[in-house]
Simulated scan of single mutants.
Amino acid sequence: MKSYLSSTVRQLKPSGIRRFFDLAAGMEGVISLGVGEPDFVTSWAVREASILSLEKGYTSYTANAGLLTLREEIQKYMKRKFQLSYDAHNQIIVTVGASQALDIAFRAVIDEGDEVIIVEPSFVSYAPLVTLAGGTPIAVQTTQENGFKLTAEQLEAAITPRTKAILLCSPNNPTGSLLEKEELEALTAIILKHDLLVLSDEIYAELTYDGSFTSIASLPDMKDRTIVISGFSKGFAMTGWRLGYVCGHPDLIEAMLKVHQYAMMCAPAMAQYGAVEALQNGEQDVVDMRKSYRRRRNYMVQSLNEMGLDCHVPGGAFYVFPSIRKTGMSSEEFAEQLLLKERVAVVPGNVFGESGEGYVRCSYASSMESLQEAVRRIANFMHQMQHA
Score class of each variant (00 low, 15 high):
residue 15 S to N: 09
residue 15 S to E: 12
residue 16 G to N: 02
residue 17 I to L: 09
residue 17 I to H: 10
residue 19 R to P: 00
residue 19 R to F: 06
residue 21 F to G: 00
residue 21 F to Q: 03
residue 21 F to L: 08
residue 21 F to N: 02
residue 22 D to P: 00
residue 22 D to L: 04
residue 23 L to M: 12
residue 23 L to N: 04
residue 23 L to W: 05
residue 24 A to N: 06
residue 24 A to K: 10
residue 24 A to I: 12
residue 25 A to I: 00
residue 25 A to N: 11
residue 26 G to W: 00
residue 26 G to A: 12
residue 27 M to L: 13
residue 27 M to K: 04
residue 27 M to I: 12
residue 28 E to V: 13
residue 29 G to Q: 03
residue 29 G to N: 10
residue 29 G to R: 08
residue 30 V to T: 03
residue 30 V to E: 05
residue 31 I to T: 13
residue 31 I to G: 01
residue 32 S to T: 15
residue 33 L to N: 07
residue 33 L to R: 01
residue 34 G to H: 03
residue 35 V to I: 15
residue 35 V to C: 01
residue 36 G to S: 11
residue 37 E to A: 02
residue 37 E to S: 09
residue 37 E to Q: 05
residue 38 P to A: 02
residue 38 P to I: 09
residue 38 P to N: 05
residue 39 D to Q: 06
residue 39 D to V: 10
residue 39 D to H: 13
residue 40 F to I: 03
residue 40 F to H: 11
residue 41 V to G: 00
residue 42 T to S: 09
residue 42 T to A: 08
residue 42 T to I: 03
residue 42 T to G: 03
residue 43 S to V: 11
residue 44 W to G: 08
residue 44 W to K: 06
residue 45 A to N: 11
residue 46 V to S: 04
residue 46 V to H: 00
residue 47 R to W: 03
residue 49 A to L: 04
residue 49 A to Y: 11
residue 49 A to P: 01
residue 50 S to F: 06
residue 50 S to E: 14
residue 52 L to V: 13
residue 52 L to Y: 10
residue 53 S to Q: 11
residue 53 S to I: 12
residue 55 E to C: 14
residue 55 E to L: 15
residue 57 G to C: 09
residue 57 G to E: 11
residue 58 Y to M: 14
residue 58 Y to S: 13
residue 58 Y to F: 15
residue 59 T to Y: 14
residue 60 S to W: 02
residue 60 S to P: 06
residue 60 S to I: 05
residue 61 Y to K: 15
residue 61 Y to A: 11
residue 63 A to L: 12
residue 63 A to R: 12
residue 63 A to S: 15
residue 64 N to R: 09
residue 64 N to H: 14
residue 65 A to M: 10
residue 66 G to M: 08
residue 67 L to Y: 01
residue 67 L to H: 11
residue 68 L to S: 11
residue 68 L to I: 15
residue 69 T to K: 10
residue 70 L to M: 04
residue 71 R to K: 15
residue 71 R to E: 03
residue 71 R to P: 12
residue 71 R to S: 01
residue 72 E to A: 07
residue 72 E to F: 01
residue 72 E to G: 00
residue 72 E to N: 07
residue 73 E to F: 01
residue 73 E to H: 14
residue 73 E to C: 09
residue 74 I to R: 08
residue 75 Q to K: 04
residue 75 Q to V: 02
residue 76 K to H: 12
residue 76 K to G: 02
residue 77 Y to R: 12
residue 77 Y to D: 06
residue 77 Y to S: 13
residue 77 Y to M: 06
residue 77 Y to T: 10
residue 78 M to Y: 13
